[in-house]
Design a protein around this nucleic acid. Structure first.
Length: 889
RNA sequence: GGGAGCAUAGCUCAGCUGGUUUAGAGCAUCUGCCUUACAAGCAGAGGGUCCGCGGUUCGAACCCGUGUGCUCCCACCA
């Protein structure tokens, strides 16, 4: 695959397509059970209707890094792709598509509608999976799952039946959150509370007796929803509120419709809020409903399911709730009921899916009893059987799990798993997978009855029209993708379950993570994953959440095309510290692109050296030093990076690697071994440099798979099947050479110091200078003298100063005298040295203060005291050195 | 209303067990360089009241208390 001449920059478009195809052709991402330990990850299934956004990109990049790392460490890595049927979102899209064609959902009927929905799914359902390939995700494409695949569908139904039989699913009439636009119930989690500017209307009700005869008194209540007075069935006051004692036991007339309603007393009513009197509308408010239950009040539902007024309202029939609110206020005012209006800010619930204002509504729905399931699921997190990263989410989880409420799982939709409940005309119902099973159940219960002859036939059974909440299928995801419920005990489930790590957004910790833990424990008897990594939320530069309505989500595919997949991965990860939200800024992608470019140029340099040929001057001590130093440095940092990876500190690992490559490898090491202009490099250095680069590419591969694979192949001819993608990283336990590391640090510091001197004294880079070094470490300097000489463009003399006409600089115990042909500005010199002297003296004072403190010397650990003593000795030596230098001027 | 988290350079963040740091990185800024790997670059530099106050300690960016300011989660006082 090696090309003869390299392009100026890395050509990402061509390389990405070629390498991804190459990996696919060689089935590198496919996994089947074998002797190796498994490392499995299940993708959080994106909505089948979805298209790739920043959140997906971050989330899947992280998963890909974990999976590729595992592959390098010799695990049998398996990353399972798939999509979620997303009942509400998908159904909404299909309905909209039909509407554009002039077809209404209701006119089609269930069967026809589902035909369109499947058609739509086949057409658009795979888009997001194709997009995941663009960012390099190493998913096992033989294992694509969909939450409505036949086996999956079947498992969902059987889980429903099983939980029903265990008494954990029940049908009940409750107040639910109703979405009048999507015409479906919502679970509490699907309701978003938003602060809303409202008006608080004070309305006067006339007091009367049971028969409706007026007493001439009035009572004033406050409400933000004046239209709901038509459903009022009581007025409530606090029993100890002296203002209303005289009203106890009396009645009131609902304005406009003159219904007689009782005045009741309940502690629930806050004396100090509003007027202290509360209108009670059991059909349209959660709390009012509870009050109604308690006091046996009538429930008058004044709305149809789409939010328009029904006959029960008596007025405004057929008009929308918000239109009615607008109309009823002037009418109440005209009739003298409106006392006053004030501005008021309150929390209003909106549907997560349709953004409609949620209407609390009484209805018959299916529920999962959560408390028994939650108990175990809380335990495994508390005991760190499942570890959360960052750990702070444990608190959140505990808090929610201990106050958990039952889960409303029915949705008034057609797209999804249809609830397996069958009804007879008399209202009896049977939970069963098929009509036949339901009939069997009916017959079983019938035989227990006295009358043998049944009034019904099997055809009288009607299946429930509703579907299950999407999360009721996705909570089975970690095991059902391996067919762990539909084909229990199969080889895959035994090998891959529990999965290793789940990577997801903290927003769905309750929707999904908690419920998967419950389902895993209930149906596999084991936790579904060992680690959960919560990513941050991707925000824009100003910290706003990315959203369609703000139009601040960038077009990811365009960015990949422009910058390349690796830079996009780099950019989004580098800005993503563990546990924090990420502020997305395109400049991070630029940094990624520049880094790609840097890598490519390092490759070009190695290739240039190779083409020029090598000499056999392997005895050069300086090159030996450079090679030995980088070897030590690489070993040191590789260990650090591995440790960070194990701790899920991926952003930090990438930063460290970036600096190792850019600074240590390119800026220091390659410059140190670089031959003089036009000369050949020695064979040993070229070989070492290539091997180091290869190792760096291996370390970087999980983060930036495309360019690293390209470079790996450009570095050398590789036999068939020798690809970075499947290369196992060697486990090196060799300790890095500490002496070399220290010598390298010294060399770097000396180079920087001398360059600084040159800069500050306007010594032109091209002009060679004379550098005199006064040191006790002559042996060390001898090791890298040639490197130093080249790096600072100086002739080196090892002898004691001072040197006349030279700039003097002090570094620890060493002194450097830099002499150029031009005149030196002495005042500037003295100034610099004096500033340094002052700093050192202040430092010495602070250290001495510490050491003269008896309490410190007695209390602190001996090694700490020793460090302080060394600091003092060093400071004294430095001060001495600077003084001498000043005198020498 | 209840709970959690955060506050360190212009920006985004490290600082893990209180002492090796009178605080580090990247980006941005400034200065000098078009030096045949790379100007998408090289070399160098400047930049800080570790949010305020109080406490614990020989010693605090770090632990405790408190105030302020942000963020998030939970909670339908109409």
């Amino acid at each position: 695959m090696t090309k003869d001449t390299l392009s100026k920059n890395f050509e990402h478009r061509e390389a990405e397509a070629r390498w991804y195809q190459h990996w696919l052709d060689n089935a590198y991402f496919n996994s089947t059970p074998d002797d190796r330990p498994a490392y499995s990850v299940v993708i959080p299934p994106p909505n089948v209707t979805g298209i790739l956004h920043m959140g997906h990109c971050l989330n899947n990049t992280i998963q890909d890094i974990l999976v590729r790392r595992a592959r390098q460490k010799g695990f049998n890595a398996c990353w399972v792709p798939g999509t979620d049927h997303a009942s509400i979102a998908t159904e909404a899209k299909v309905v909209q598509m039909l509407r554009e064609r002039g077809i209404s959902k209701s006119s089609l009927g269930r069967e026809e509608f589902l035909k369109y929905a499947w058609e739509w799914k086949e057409k658009y359902g795979g888009i997001i999976l194709e997009q995941l390939k663009k960012i390099g995700c190493s998913l096992d494409w033989n294992r694509v799952n969909f939450t409505m695949d036949p086996d999956f569908y079947d498992s969902v139904i059987r889980v429903f039946i099983d939980l029903h039989e265990k008494g954990l699913i029940y049908r009940g009439k409750r107040m639910i959150n109703w979405d009048p636009r999507a015409l479906t119930a919502l679970s509490d989690e699907e309701v978003i509370m938003k602060e809303t500017q409202s008006k608080l209307y004070h309305l006067q009700y006339k007091i009367c007796d049971e028969k409706g005869s007026l007493s001439g008194e009035t009572v004033t209540i406050a409400t933000v929803r004046p239209e709901t007075i038509l459903g009022d069935t009581a007025i409530a006051v606090n029993p100890s509120d002296v203002r209303f004692m005289h009203l106890h036991g009396k009645f009131a007339l609902v304005p406009l419709i003159d219904r007689v309603i009782p005045i009741i007393t309940d502690d629930y009513v806050a004396i100090d809020f509003g007027t202290g009197a509360l209108k009670v509308t059991p059909a349209h408010d959660m709390n009012d409903y509870q009050l109604g239950e308690k006091h046996g009040l009538q429930v008058i539902d004044i709305m149809y399911d789409n939010g328009t007024f029904s006959e029960a309202a008596q007025l405004y029939i057929g008009e929308d709730r918000f239109a009615v609110r607008k109309k009823i206020v002037p009418e109440l005012e005209a009739a003298g009921y409106l006392v006053k209006t004030e501005d008021y800010t309150n929390q209003v619930g909106y549907s997560e899916r349709s953004d409609a204002v949620v209407e609390p509504r009484l209805s018959l729905q299916w529920w999962v009893k959560m408390a028994p399931l939650a108990e175990k699921a809380l335990g495994v997190v508390e005991q760190d059987e499942i570890r959360f990263h960052p750990a702070k989410f444990k608190n959140l989880y505990r808090h929610w799990m201990s106050g958990i409420k039952d889960w409303c799982i029915s949705r008034q939709l057609w797209w999804g798993q249809r609830i397996p409940a069958w009804y007879l005309p008399d209202g009896c119902y049977f939970v069963a997978a098929t009509r036949e099973d339901a009939w069997k159940k009916y017959e079983e219960t019938c035989t227990m009855r006295e009358d043998e002859t049944s009034a019904f036939t099997i055809h009288d059974l009607q299946q429930d029209d509703d579907c299950l909440d999407t999360w009721f299928s996705s909570w089975l995801w970690p095991f059902e993708v391996f067919k762990g419920y539909s084909h229990p005990g199969n080889q895959d489930i035994q090998y891959y379950y529990p999965t290793a790590t789940l990577v997801t957004a903290p927003e769905i910790i309750f929707f999904w993570v908690a419920r998967m833990i419950m389902a895993g424990l209930e149906y596999q008897g084991q936790i579904p994953f060992k680690d959960v990594y919560f990513t941050g939320i991707v925000r824009d530069k100003q910290g706003r959440k990315m959203s369609k309505s703000l139009g601040n989500s960038p077009d990811l595919l365009a960015l990949i095309d422009q910058y390349g997949a690796d830079p996009v991965r780099f950019g989004i990860l580098i800005a993503s510290p563990a546990g924090n939200d990420i502020l997305f800024d395109e400049s991070a992608l630029e940094q990624g692109r520049n880094f790609s470019n840097k890598l490519w140029n390092a490759l070009k340099l190695l290739r240039l050296w190779k083409e020029r040929g090598t000499n056999s001057l392997t005895g050069k001590a300086d090159s030996h030093f450079a090679n030995a130093w980088f070897k030590a440095r690489l070993a040191q940092v590789a260990t650090e990076i591995d440790e960070m990876g194990n701790q899920f500190r991926l952003s930090e690992a990438l930063k460290t690697l970036y600096s190792l490559i850019w600074d240590d490898y390119c800026s220091w090491y390659l410059e140190w071994i670089k031959p003089a202009y036009g000369e050949q490099i020695d064979e040993d250095s070229l070989q070492q440099a290539s091997l180091f680069f290869e190792e760096l590419m291996l370390l970087l591969h999980p983060f930036m798979p495309f360019i690293t694979e390209s470079i790996y192949h450009e570095l050398a001819e590789r036999p068939e099947g020798d690809d970075l993608c499947i290369k196992i990283s060697p486990i090196s336990s060799a300790m890095p050479d500490q002496e070399k590391l220290q010598q390298g640090d010294l060399l770097k510091t000396v180079i920087t110091t001398i360059r600084d001197v040159r800069n500050k004294n306007q010594m032109k880079p091209k002009n060679r200078v004379e550098l005199t070094i006064e040191t006790t470490l002559t042996d060390t300097y001898a090791i890298f003298e040639t490197i130093l000489s080249n790096q600072v463009n100086a002739d080196i003399v090892m002898e004691n100063g001072p040197v006349k006409g030279a700039v003097t600089v002090v570094l620890e115990k060493d002194k450097f005298f830099v002499k150029a042909e031009q005149q030196i500005d002495l005042t500037q010199q003295i100034d610099t040295l004096k500033k340094d002297l002052e700093y050192q003296q202040n430092f010495l004072t602070s250290v001495e203060k510490k050491l003269s403190n008896e309490k410190f010397v007695n209390h602190a650990k001996p090694e700490i005291v020793a460090i302080e003593q060394k600091k003092r000795a060093d400071a004294i030596a430095r001060i001495q050195n600077i003084r001498e230098s000043l005198e020498g001027l």
